[in-house]
Nucleic acid binder design. Structure first.
Lengths: 238, 238
DNA sequence: TCCATGAGGTGTACGCCGTACACCTGAGGG
DNA sequence: CCCTCAGGTGTACGGCGTACACCTCATGGA
């Protein structure tokens, strides 16, 4: 039995093993359960052992972020910047759906990791290759903001909540408590008007994917229009 | 001297006084310095005294958020939904610039406060009054996302950083460390191409206000176009 | 006038967190 | 054969949110 325990934790610790365990823990139990102590316990090791492989918790988070960013599909070259960018952002979104804690983690760091910089750099590259001026590409990157990493940017977001408190529990359909609905009639109205293409299923929650693509296409279409007009910041509209 | 101390803290505690002190502390020292202990010390009181007026730290944050939301200008009625919405969002942005900790605080709560719900409700009302279908208004609210509260949604944001670590220190101009610039040529290019209308000041950081309005107008223009086209989710483009 | 009441401030204590620092241990090289 | 040192351990510190028992003192009914 002692030997069993020994065999179980025979696999030596390594930065990589720590990062994978940390990502798994955050996926399953939520980012708020990711403490150095919990993580060490999952790895069958004493908390301080982790510090031989990661400098501190912030660096651990950076490493986890890089793991996530590494899962995003690379840009597939193509003639059309719009499809390239759209496709990759949707891939990023899929990755974030697997790691709902990631947006919060990324936002809470105050400098980009090299992996994120590389991702952003390649996105700018796609715009430039599509004929965008550096000027326009710059503003476009700002306008996309965190959406370019697949963030949904919802104010109150079931996925975010999952990233905090553990596995996703499906939102109760169109969940506005009765008293609330009465005080905020416009919200109640659009909550029940969550139609989408399936009109029969009325009053269900929102189709996150639809909302995401709606917003993404709104931006991309607007960007395409500016690009076609030869927009520059010096002679800007209005 | 005992009397002096007594006179100083003669003002009795109250929920309102606590909230104002908390907002002030977060503004000055950053949200990470806002602990019940620090706040109590600022108020000349023992930590547990706060709990007679707020249930716990989460409720304190909710209260602080409501203070911030309360500072946003109300909707000024007008014929044009676009100007109404635009104006109010820019007001929200100004408020957030005074309280850089607020976005993080809002995102970290997992349900909207009544004040935020009221704000969102009135925004929906503006769209509806402008002739939007409930359907379109719904998707538009999702597409605006946190931008509707004035969030800039930058991935790595000087204001965010300030909200974390205290008072804003102006960003060093176009701050890309030399090694980084070499590895990410496209980022380097658009960083130096931060032109704006003042071409003489080259390589300065970004004009946050410009970037925010650029993104906001991109969205609003796209929304206006959909509205004019009588967009509905049942017969959606593509 | 007196005393019960209860709102509101206090003190202590618990379990969590990140992590500094001294220590031990065992495999690999001279 | 022993030295070294990478890597795992144990203890401890200061910070956090907050449960819980306590004290204090203004207030209002008898």
């Amino acid at each position: 039995m002692v030997e069993q325990a020994d065999t179980l934790r025979r696999t030596p610790l390594s930065r990589d093993r720590i990062l994978r365990a940390a990502v798994a823990l955050a996926n399953e139990a939520g980012i708020e359960s990711l403490s150095m102590r919990n993580l060490a316990q999952d790895l069958g090791v004493v908390p301080m052992a982790l510090y031989k492989h990661v400098a501190n918790k912030d660096e651990l988070l950076d490493g986890m972020i890089d793991v996530v960013v590494g899962e995003i599909d690379p840009l597939v070259p193509g003639a059309d910047w719009k499809h390239m960018v759209r496709r990759r952002i949707l891939s990023a979104r899929q990755v974030l759906r697997r790691h709902p804690w990631a947006p919060l983690a990324i936002e809470s760091r105050n400098m980009a990791t090299p992996a994120i910089l590389a991702y952003l750099d390649s996105m700018v590259g796609a715009f430039r290759a599509g004929g965008f001026s550096a000027d326009l590409a710059h503003h476009v990157m700002h306008a996309m903001g965190s959406r370019i990493l697949g963030f949904s940017q919802e104010l109150f977001d079931a996925a975010r909540r999952a990233g905090r408190s553990g596995t996703t529990v499906p939102d109760s359909p169109a969940a506005l408590p009765p008293g609330v609905a009465a005080r905020f009639p416009h919200l109640a109205e659009i909550a029940t008007a969550a139609s989408h293409d399936d009109e029969s299923v009325v009053g269900q929650g929102c189709d996150d994917q639809f909302e995401f693509e709606f917003a993404l296409d709104l931006l991309l279409d607007g960007i395409e229009r500016l690009h076609q007009q030869g927009w520059t910041s010096s002679r800007r509209p209005r």
